[in-house]
Nucleic acid binder design. Structure first.
Lengths: 230, 230
DNA sequence: GAGTGGTCTAGACCACCCT
DNA sequence: GGGTGGTCTAGACCACTCC
């Protein structure tokens, strides 16, 4: 094992066993490099890995803090609004085609669609980034509701029900945009859920993408009677 | 944007638009550092990020190759054996307690259990790492079958059916062991599925973990009539 | 101004591949 | 032996925080 890996594993061990407690400041790079007898740059590299793994958060001019681990576990068939202390923040409403390559498995239509992007926060920290696409010919009034509410809620007001849902769940490394919104380093492991919802209104089929950092969200699913693989 | 980020994004752009095609060798670090007018170390750092993002694979003494993207999409309620060209390789059969912290949300029992670990490969490349736990008092003969077959198959031979399944899906960064099996760098984004299966045999409840690199596996789920959140 | 981490560079050494 | 990438170091500069 290389030097920086050894340092990284030792620091990780100290975080896990509580030597470096939650929300506390780690010793400075200079101190650690002395203690381990390695160059400061090697310590920095170890810290960089730990940051990328969600173990630490570093603040320029201050130091490295042990990241608090609070992960939200969501049931996939649970309604969104049942979460406490969540806050919806509208990012943008645009007209565009679905170009996200991760959506291809849901075979989206190749036409201009209405796109509503929002960020959902819990206790001030964003934990979900949602982009949902609707047929461009939806009435303008409904757009406003979509920005402030969850889609199913907005649809229900108009007595539109969801008939069928397809979901694809995958992990992926954070890229520029998602990394910025969640304030995580590039390459940070993320969870993505692509969805397609068919409604009782033949004109309205909803496509979308929800993203979240791996350490803030996990999904749970229950199958009452289905036989499962592995 | 920092220098190495600029280099990284430009290289990524070239991979995406086909300038550097799949399975081809990139120019050497020395060449790239000349072209971009930066230090070789800065290029190396950019390459390191791209390796961590699953874009490149580097081989010592040869160079950096563009990684082929072949992701398997699996339906969560699809039976495993329906996949073509898959191969099961038994890693170990042990008796141990469930200590994986990612399992706590499924509330596993705190007792010695039988643990069967296997790797499932497709076309020679491992894409699934499964660890499944059973009550330790299961008959010895069944253990052998578990190593060679998928659990549901082994159970069905004994006319045991699955009554209920709970699943938790999450992303996480690859650590030492998983990184080794799949030959991915530390911190590589992975997809994990924790499961709990209740069977018709009151003595047999199965717990387990399936892991896969983000670029080799995604899960899909269909809900015929359920109303979904966001 | 002193201390912190983030970045970039130059130079060195090593392990590995190919010829 | 010459080329490749991986690692480690020393030194420098910058941006930031805190006193």
């Amino acid at each position: 094992m290389s030097l920086y890996e050894t340092v990284r594993e030792e620091l990780l061990r100290r975080v896990r066993n509580g030597t470096y407690a939650c929300d506390t400041l780690l010793p400075s790079v200079a101190t650690l490099s002395e203690e381990f007898g390695v160059s400061p740059i090697t310590v920095k590299r170890a810290l960089r890995d730990l940051r990328a793994a969600g173990v630490l958060v570093t603040i320029r001019g201050k130091g490295a803090y042990v990241k608090k681990q609070v992960r939200i576990l969501r049931q996939l068939d649970m309604r969104m609004h049942s979460l406490h202390g969540t806050d919806i923040s509208l990012i943008s409403v645009t007209r565009e085609k679905i170009s996200d390559p991760s959506m291809v498995s849901l075979a989206p239509p190749d036409q201009m669609m209405l796109c509503v992007r929002k960020v959902i926060s819990s206790d001030g920290a964003p934990f979900l980034y949602d982009a949902s696409y609707l047929s461009s010919n939806v009435e303008d009034e409904i757009v406003d509701e979509f920005g402030r509410n969850f889609i199913v809620d907005a649809l229900r007001k108009r007595e539109i029900r969801i008939v069928k849902t397809e979901i694809v769940v995958e992990a992926f490394p954070a890229t520029g945009k998602a990394a910025e919104i969640f304030d995580v380093p590039n390459g940070f492991p993320m969870l993505r859920r692509n969805y397609k919802m068919v409604t009782t209104d033949a004109n309205i089929t909803i496509y979308g993408v929800v993203q979240a950092p791996f350490d803030r969200l996990a999904c749970s699913i229950d199958f009452p009677t289905l036989a499962m693989e592995i």
